[in-house]
Amino acid sequence: MENNNYAIETNDLSIHYGRFTAVKSVNMKVERQKITAIIGPSGCGKSTLLRAFNRMNDFVPGCFVTGELLLDKQNLYGKTIDPVEVRRKIGMVFQKPNPFPKSIYENIAWGARINGFKGKMDDLVEQSLRAAALWDEVKDKLQESAYALSGGQQQRLCIARTIAIQPEIILMDEPASALDPISTLRIEELMQELKKNYTIIIVTHNMQQAARASDYTAMMMIDDKRAGSVIEFDDTKTIFMRPSDKRTEDYVTGRFG
C-alpha cells in the first residue's frame, strides 16, 4: 500500500561528471499529486538532480548516475529502460520559456503526434491550453507563431505542451525565474490546479515561492568537496517553521546565501 502514494523514489541516487560527484546519495520519496519543491543555494545541484529525474543529463558528456531512481518500482536507469519512454512519462518545463519556432497549435500538436496520439488533435490542443489557463488568450491566434506571445504566455504554452502528452510527473526548473511577478503568480496558481492530476517537482531559488506553493520541500546544500546533497526533506511547513537542521534554518531565514 505504501508505494502507491509515491510517484518517484530515489535510493542513494548520486550524479557524477566524470570523477566529480555533483550530487551525493539522495533518498527521497515524492508523493503523488503533490508539489515538491527543491531549494538551496545556487550551485548546489538542484537542477542537476531535477534533470536526473527524466534523464536529461544523458546529453551531458561524461555524466552518469549511481543508485536507483524508481518510478512504479522500475529503476529508470535500468538497462532495459528507454530514456525516450522515461521523458514521455516525466515531462519538464524549463527555466527560460523555450517554445518551438512553430505555431501555437503546432507547439502542442507536435509532441502528441510523435508520441502516437490517435484522438482529435483540435480537442487535445484546446484541452491542454485550457488546462494551462492560456486558451482564452490564444484561441483566436492558434496559427500564429509562438514567439509572438509574452514570456509568461510562452511559459504557460510550454506547460500546455507538456500536459498534452499526459505525463505522470511534471518537472519544473525555476519556471518563473525569467518572468515578471504577475506572470509568476499565474504560474503558481496554475500549479495548484495541475496538482489535481499530476505530481509536480519544482526547483526554485525563491523561498517565498516554495513556502507558498509547495507541499513538501527538499533542502539541498553543498559540502566541502562541492558535492550537493539533500540535507533535509519534509513537509514544507516543517521546513520553514521548525527545521531540524541548523543550515536549513539559516537558509530559510535568510542568514545564508
Binding site: D82, V84, E85, R88, I114, N115, G116, F117, K118, G119, L124, Q127, A131, I163, I165, Q166, N197
Partner: peptide, 21 residues
C-alpha cells in the same frame, strides 16, 4: 482529461511504436 490518456498508445503498443520510430 482522463479519457485523453486512452488515446496514447501504452505499454506494448507504445513500445512497438517506439521500435518503429
Amino acid at each position: 482529461m482522463s479519457n485523453e490518456k486512452i488515446s496514447y498508445p501504452e505499454g506494448a503498443d507504445f513500445y512497438s511504436a517506439l521500435r518503429a520510430r
